[in-house]
Amino acid sequence: MTNKMPPAVRDRAWQIAHHEMGHYVVARALGFETGGVTLTVTMDLRHQGGASISLIRPIASLEAMREHLEARIMVLLAGAMAQTLPSKPSAAKRVDKAKATTILKGEQGAEQDYAKIRELQHLLRNIAYPDTDPVLGERIAAQLKAMTDRLWIRTQDIIEDQAQSIAELAGALVDGMVIVEQWGRAADTYEVVFTGPMLERLRAVQAIPSLPVWTDSCSDAVQQCK
Rank of each mutant, 00 (worst) to 15 (best):
V180N: 03
A17S: 07
V37G: 06
I53P: 01
A27F: 01
V75F: 00
G196V: 00
A172I: 03
L123N: 10
T155V: 06
I159F: 09
D113G: 02
A221H: 03
A163F: 09
E200Y: 08
A92S: 15
T101M: 13
A8K: 15
G196K: 08
M43C: 12
H19F: 05
A204T: 03
A91F: 04
M5F: 13
R94V: 05
E200I: 03
V37Y: 12
K99F: 02
A100P: 06
R185G: 06
M5L: 15
Q15A: 08
S219P: 00
E200S: 14
A186P: 03
R125I: 13
M74R: 11
D216V: 11
A98C: 02
A98M: 04
D161W: 07
E181H: 13
A78E: 03
T148Q: 15
T148H: 12
E33Q: 14
A51F: 01
R94T: 09
S87P: 00
Q83L: 02
I158A: 05
Y24N: 02
A29I: 10
H23P: 01
E67P: 00
D220L: 07
V174Y: 08
Q48T: 09
V180H: 01
Y114L: 08
M74Q: 13
T40C: 04
S217K: 03
S210Y: 00
I153A: 12
L144Y: 06
H19K: 12
L76C: 13
L77C: 08
D44N: 15
G22V: 05
S87E: 07
L55K: 04
A80H: 01
V222P: 00
H19V: 06
G36E: 07
I59P: 00
G79P: 05
Q224H: 06
L124A: 12
L77Q: 07
A71M: 05
L151P: 04
D96V: 01
T155I: 05
I53M: 09
Q108G: 03
N126G: 15
V205P: 15
G137F: 13
H23Y: 00
T102G: 14
M21A: 10
L120S: 04
V213S: 00
G50M: 08
S61Q: 10
S52P: 00
I159D: 14
Y190W: 15
A221Q: 01
R72S: 08
D157F: 03
L124P: 07
A170I: 10
H19W: 09
A78C: 06
V180S: 04
Y190I: 08
A71Q: 09
P130L: 12
I117F: 01
D131L: 11
A80D: 02
V205F: 11
L76W: 06
D131M: 15
V75I: 05
G171E: 13
N126R: 12
H18L: 09
L69V: 12
T101L: 10
P209I: 11
L144I: 14
A60L: 10
H19R: 13
S217P: 01
V95W: 00
I140H: 02
G184H: 08
P209F: 07
R203W: 12
P209D: 06
Q15D: 09
A204N: 03
